[in-house]
Simulated assay, not measured.
Amino acid sequence: MARRLLSIWFPRLASDISLRVRPVEGPFALTLRASNADHLHCLNGIASAAGLHRGMPLADARAVCPVLSTRPADLIREGRALEGLRRWASRYGPHAAKDGSDGLIVDVSGVPHLFGGEVELLADLEARLERDYD
């Protein structure tokens, strides 16, 4: 049997977590300090649409988008949230692992037939994510 891996990426996980605790209207980003400068770590959709991107120096981001709201990133909170999602995703396969700071890899080998096929497994995953985490 061929091994089948499911990759799940949460590009806005950190900003979504932060905004659930303290909502902000408009462009928003979490920052991390590196090389004596703050850089954008995770952005909401509005900030991305304004032309900002992960890794961009905060000073440059403010020049592009002066109304950008920011907070320092909380890497511990992000790690806990991703661990919770990893446990949650284990319903789709016997082995689920973190993939970086914002993704998961789930071994779904031999599992899709339990959901009616791969398409149905993905549909179930998307529906549950929207219901449980939206």
Rank of each mutant, 00 (worst) to 15 (best):
M1S: 12
R3P: 02
R3S: 04
R4M: 10
R4Y: 01
R4H: 09
L5W: 04
S7W: 06
W9F: 13
F10G: 05
F10Y: 08
F10W: 08
P11G: 10
P11T: 12
L13E: 02
L13Q: 01
L13P: 02
S15H: 13
S15T: 12
S15K: 14
S18R: 01
L19W: 09
R20I: 08
R20L: 06
R22N: 14
P23T: 05
P23Q: 08
P23E: 07
V24Q: 14
V24C: 14
E25P: 07
G26Q: 02
A29V: 05
A29S: 13
T31H: 11
R33N: 15
R33S: 15
R33Q: 15
A34M: 11
A34H: 12
A34R: 13
S35C: 10
N36Y: 10
D38Q: 12
H39G: 14
H39D: 14
H39L: 15
L40M: 10
L40V: 05
H41L: 09
C42H: 14
C42F: 14
C42M: 12
N44L: 10
N44D: 10
G45H: 12
G45I: 05
A47F: 12
A47Y: 14
S48P: 00
S48D: 08
A50H: 11
L52Q: 08
R54T: 15
R54N: 15
M56K: 09
M56F: 02
M56R: 10
A59P: 07
A59S: 13
D60S: 15
A61Q: 11
A63G: 07
C65Q: 11
P66D: 07
S69A: 15
A73Q: 07
L75F: 12
L75D: 10
L75P: 03
I76K: 15
I76L: 12
E78S: 03
G79N: 12
G79T: 05
R80H: 12
R80C: 06
L82E: 03
L82M: 08
L82K: 06
E83H: 09
E83A: 14
E83I: 15
L85N: 00
R86M: 04
R86K: 11
W88E: 01
W88G: 04
A89Y: 02
A89V: 08
A89W: 02
S90E: 10
R91H: 06
Y92Q: 03
Y92M: 01
A96K: 06
A96Y: 04
A97V: 11
K98G: 03
G103S: 04
L104Y: 01
I105A: 01
V106G: 03
V106M: 06
G110A: 09
V111K: 00
P112Y: 04
P112D: 05
H113W: 04
H113E: 14
L114E: 00
L114A: 05
F115A: 05
G116E: 03
G117Q: 03
L121E: 02
L121Q: 02
D124I: 04
A127H: 01
R128C: 13
L129F: 00
L129D: 07
L129Y: 00
L129E: 08
E130G: 10
D132N: 04
D132T: 07
Y133S: 01
Y133C: 03
